[in-house]
Computed example of a mutant assay.
Amino acid sequence: MTDYGLDPRRVDPEYDRHGGFPVFEAADPGPGFGRFLTAMRQAQDLAVSVNPDPDTWDEAADRVEELVKLLDPFRAGEGAGPANRVPSLPGAGSLLMPPWTVTRFEADGIELEVTFSRYHVGGNSAVHGGVLPLLFDSMFGMVIHATGRPISRTAFLHVDYRKVTPIDTVLTARGWLREAEGRKAFVNAELLDADGNVLAESNGLMIRLLPGQP
């Protein structure tokens, strides 16, 4: 698998002129961070699915507040903390992202494996429709990086929902550059189940930032 945590200046010498984004170099926070993410994802699933007695909620709140107290002194700026900078972990180590793993990262296309869970349910055991644009938008950024194009932002993103997206099963997501024209990059992505059925597909436009644009 290609290391998608490379310094973007290697593919974009004008990187600093396109909004001055932090340099997202790969981080190595140690095995404890992976354990932390796993536990937090389990906590997210439980937070939206359990129905305990009222006293248990108070006890749970006490423990979460203790966790907040433990971590609060270590707040770090964007690009400094390990979240979103550990390619070997699901979602690159970001709890915001669905837990995907990159299986292919090439100029002609990227591929991920992703498994949604109870935390992502919108109703009737189906993944919430709003979660899929987050996945696709993340993929569009990966496509831009994989093709060596300059840093860009999403101008628009369109999603077609073809079938219900299930939880607790490994799905495949693919993304690729369809066409490039100057600052514009038109990108596509799709989400498939194990049988190759298209669950959702997306197309979007990524625009290269001009000097000084955030």
Rank of each mutant, 00 (worst) to 15 (best):
G91A: 10
A92E: 15
A92K: 10
W100M: 15
V50F: 09
P99S: 13
L70C: 08
A80Q: 15
L95K: 15
G91E: 04
D53M: 10
P73A: 07
D58L: 10
L71F: 15
R75N: 06
G79L: 02
E78R: 12
G77T: 05
K69G: 01
P82L: 05
L96S: 08
W57M: 06
L96Q: 10
E65A: 08
P54K: 02
S94V: 11
N84V: 11
A83P: 03
S49H: 06
D72I: 10
D58I: 08
V102P: 00
V64E: 03
T101C: 07
V48I: 06
L95V: 12
A92G: 11
A92W: 15
S49P: 04
T103A: 05
R75E: 11
K69Y: 02
P99T: 14
L67Q: 10
L89Y: 02
V68I: 15
Q44P: 01
V68T: 10
E66D: 09
P54V: 05
P54M: 03
L96P: 04
A76K: 09
A61G: 00
M97L: 06
D55W: 01
T103C: 05
P99N: 13
V68M: 12
E59K: 14
P52C: 06
P87A: 02
D72G: 00
D45N: 14
D62N: 08
P87N: 01
M97E: 07
A43W: 04
D45Q: 05
V68P: 05
P52Y: 09
P90R: 06
A83V: 02
L67F: 08
P82N: 07
F74M: 04
R85S: 02
L70S: 08
E59C: 06
A80V: 15
E78C: 07
F74Q: 03
R85G: 00
P73V: 12
V48G: 03
A80L: 12
G81Y: 07
V48W: 00
L67I: 06
S94H: 12
L95Q: 14
T101F: 05
R75D: 09
G77S: 09
S49T: 15
A92V: 07
T56V: 13
S94Q: 12
A83W: 01
F74H: 11
V48C: 06
F74L: 04
L71R: 06
R85T: 00
K69D: 08
P54N: 04
L70I: 12
E78P: 13
D53L: 11
T101K: 10
T56M: 13
P99G: 14
A47H: 07
A83R: 01
V68C: 09
V68L: 15
L67A: 14
V48R: 03
P98K: 05
E78Y: 09
P52R: 10
P87Y: 01
W57S: 03
T56S: 13
P98G: 07
W57F: 13
